[in-house]
Design a protein around this nucleic acid. Structure first.
Lengths: 229, 229
DNA sequence: ATCATATCTTTGAGTATTCAAAATAACTAT
DNA sequence: ATAGTTATTTTGAATACTCAAAGATATGAT
């Protein structure tokens, strides 16, 4: 059994790998800062995980998950995202807080309980932030959504996913009415000002920095009416 | 924050203390075997917990919970029992397995989530085994139920609580129809054979050893129709 | 090519938890 | 009261995880 700590390293490694394009190895320093530990700690942990066959690691060449490590990471991710959705849907918690709750619960949920939760929720495909939920077989379908920073302008878009899961960011998204499901149009972009001007359905126009806009993914098709994968 | 390990020691100490009448200190050896560790481990842990103000410990005189330790133990117990009931009532898990599930979840549930669960269940007073649930203020009301080994014979009794939470024992209780809520009469007892003969409503008579009968608590009043405390 | 800088690894040490086994204290039965 | 048993404590060591700081390597700018 992998410890909570090991599960956290694998999950983080997966996330960092994804967020950087998913092509090359993850530098130890990036992993260390994502984990909130000093680099030396990450180095020795990666050696241990390499011995356990969960990562592939070569000194000074960064790390990547092994196939087994990736499966484990996806299992943790499945637990995390199903728990998040359950906390919102079944217990009515605020979506801005469930991320941190799930960070603790994801290590304590057995498969038995997890599959009950999955069934109770009707085998959902995305969590409250729009993050896709890996299947019990460890497959993850990542929809090809684009962000408000690059999508077509002047066209109605449906918010599908919010990448940044910081509590304050989520509260901001909430206030602006940009939760998944919301309808929004990008009026235009100002490269010099580094902003996008958007109109959330029924609201006045606002502008977002490109960095913020890049955190909000959208789709022209309404995913609520699209058959899930 | 108390670690899971510390929470487990406090919970176990509370349980052992209760099960032995609750009067004197708990010998280190009893605690160690209840925790599944060697006595030396329990000794050093008790020193640490005494330094942290969670137990009162004197060399070779056993341990007891301090007021703060007892509050913490009751909080853990509340989490454990609410989680058990939630798993049975909301997720439909078998009552024979929820004890071990709750043993892991009890350390990962925040107060925020716990109070949601409590509300969703309608502020219940007992868990699926009939164990009373401490309040959020850390008060525990222990009903004065008697066991099948000592209750009045020839009188209808309602099963209120099953003390032994071993999976196989619970499966046995299930098979015999002796879950909390069941109606049962003790026909008689045979001191020489060390058995009680019981009749579960609508079934043929069976006999139980006194040790087993002592694990099942009953009440002449139907607790389902009695106002909860 | 070479020096400064940034990144990574190593080393030594600390905390929390555990065990095995030796040392000590308490209890019991005569 | 004393020998023998039983319970408890101590000691030394292991594992998992962490940090601080020193040492090694790579990068990249001239």
């Amino acid at each position: 059994m992998a410890s909570s700590t090991v599960e956290d390293y694998l999950k983080t490694l997966y996330a960092v790998h994804q967020s950087t394009g998913g092509t090359s190895n993850v530098p130890i320093g990036r992993l260390a800062s994502a984990m909130g530990v000093v680099p030396g700690t990450a180095t020795s942990m990666m050696k241990a995980l390499a011995d356990a066959g969960l990562v592939e690691y070569e000194s000074r060449a960064g790390v990547r998950l092994s196939p087994r490590g990736e499966q484990l990471a996806l299992h943790v991710l499945r637990r995390h995202r199903l728990v998040e959705l359950f906390l919102v849907s079944a217990l009515g918690l605020d979506w801005s807080v469930v991320h941190e709750e799930a960070d603790r619960l994801e290590h304590a949920i057995s498969d038995r309980v997890l599959e009950r939760i999955d069934a109770a929720l009707g085998h959902p495909t995305v969590d409250p932030h729009g993050d896709p939920i890996p299947t019990s077989k460890g497959k993850l379908y990542e929809p090809e959504w684009v962000s408000l920073a690059v999508c077509e302008t002047g066209v109605k878009q449906h918010v599908t996913r919010v990448l940044n899961q910081n509590i304050d960011f989520l509260r901001f998204v909430e206030r602006e009415g940009l939760r998944p499901g919301a309808v929004v149009t990008v009026q235009g972009r100002d490269d010099a000002a580094d902003t996008s001007t958007i109109v959330v359905h029924g609201r006045k126009p606002t502008s977002l920095s490109m960095a913020v806009a890049a955190q909000i993914l959208v789709s022209t098709a309404d995913p609520a009416t699209t058959a899930p994968a």
